Simulated scan of single mutants.
Amino acid sequence: MANRVAGPEIEKLIQLLAKLPGLGPRSARRVALHLIKKKDQLLVPLADAINQAVTKVQICETCGNIDSASPCTICTDRRRDPALLVVVEDVSDLWALERAGVVNAAYHVLGGTLSPLDGIGPDDLNIPGLLVRTAKGDIREIILAVNATVEGQTTAHYITDQLQNQAKDLQADNPTFERIRISQLAHGVPIGGELDYLDEGTLLQAIRSRTSFE
């Protein structure tokens, strides 16, 4: 059994770093050692930034994005097209599209995908919030920017059914209500691919070549 080479505080830091995506025990040790060596330049500012994130970061009540204010910066940006809504699985997908600068629209974060095997149903996602937004009649097109996975496509089909049923009910009460166009990402997104790992060119092509969801 290997002997300890550092105190419990450092061991705890390494253990926590090892839980981050892309970091294993060895990488976590290297990162921890680098932070400690650069204590004043890195470790102290990082600790302060994490503390501020804990106290100030919150989930946007409108779209589900993560920001220090609610509604978030994106939802309060009047330069965006309020008639175009991009639906994504996670905040990382929203940030990926924003990083690529491919669309100037509002967003809606689902918080995951439908997965019966994992016990994730419609009530576990932000689908009711989406229906509340579409019922107002301000949205003209929804882009289902979900990942090209089985779970992602299952979720897209479910959302489409819900939106179509909602449109029928709204039109029954208000014949002038216009149905929302539903489109999906097209060329450039491979089957099984995830948005956060795609480059900006691929995302741009996927947005520009979107097709009606069927």
Rank of each mutant, 00 (worst) to 15 (best):
E98D: 09
L43A: 09
I36E: 11
I50L: 15
G119I: 00
L84H: 07
R80A: 04
R80K: 06
D81P: 00
A49R: 04
P122I: 02
C72F: 06
R26F: 06
V88Q: 04
L85M: 12
A96H: 02
S70C: 11
Q41F: 10
E98N: 14
E89D: 13
L110M: 00
D81M: 03
A69N: 04
R79F: 03
Y107L: 08
N51W: 09
L117A: 15
D81V: 06
K56H: 15
R99C: 07
T55I: 00
R78F: 01
V57L: 08
G64L: 10
E98H: 01
L33D: 02
D40Q: 08
D77L: 00
S115N: 13
L110V: 01
R99A: 15
L85I: 05
Y107V: 07
N104T: 00
V54C: 15
Y107H: 14
N104D: 05
H34C: 03
T113M: 13
L84V: 06
P82G: 14
C75Q: 11
A105S: 14
P82Y: 11
Q41T: 07
L97R: 05
R79H: 02
Y107A: 12
I50S: 05
L85Q: 09
V57S: 00
R29V: 03
A83P: 07
V44G: 05
N65W: 07
L97H: 05
A100C: 11
T55H: 03
E61C: 10
V103G: 08
